[in-house]
């Protein structure tokens, strides 16, 4: 499996997520699509951490093991933060639904001119 194939998968999932965020009316679907985008980023980060080393670096096994965990650490952080964000997002969606009986993002347009 090469770096490119993994990146293509990441990009595809990101694009699907973006499409969902921009096109779905339901706030829950938007949040789910957002989750797809997070995970596309996670895939990309982990892939770079697995395959790519900074140029001019000693690429011995020890060095890689020690130094190239940055991408994986990032992925774990993103998963954590995404969980918190989803909790917050769903809470907001519920609050909106309670106050105006709708969960459509197109109806949340109080900030228009």
């Amino acid at each position: 499996m090469s770096l490119e194939s993994v990146l293509i998968v990441g990009a595809a999932i990101f694009a699907i997520g973006l499409y969902g965020v921009l096109s779905k009316r339901s706030a829950i679907t938007v949040l789910m699509s957002l989750e797809l985008m997070f995970n596309a980023v996670n895939i990309t980060a982990v892939a770079f951490s697995r395959y790519a080393a900074p140029s001019g670096m000693d690429t011995g096994a020890d060095a890689l093991a020690r130094l190239l965990l940055t991408g994986q650490v990032f992925a774990i952080f993103i998963i954590t933060v995404a969980a918190a964000e989803v909790a917050l997002g769903v809470a907001i969606v519920i609050a909106i639904y309670r106050s105006r009986q709708t969960a459509f993002v197109t109806d949340a347009n109080q900030m228009r001119h």
């Binding site: 965020v21 921009l22 197109t106 347009n109 109080q110 900030m111 001119h113």
Partner: peptide, 12 residues
Amino acid sequence: AHAQSGQLQGYG
């Protein structure tokens, strides 16, 4: 000002 529609997805 008319571009400010309040539609978040439009901005996106």
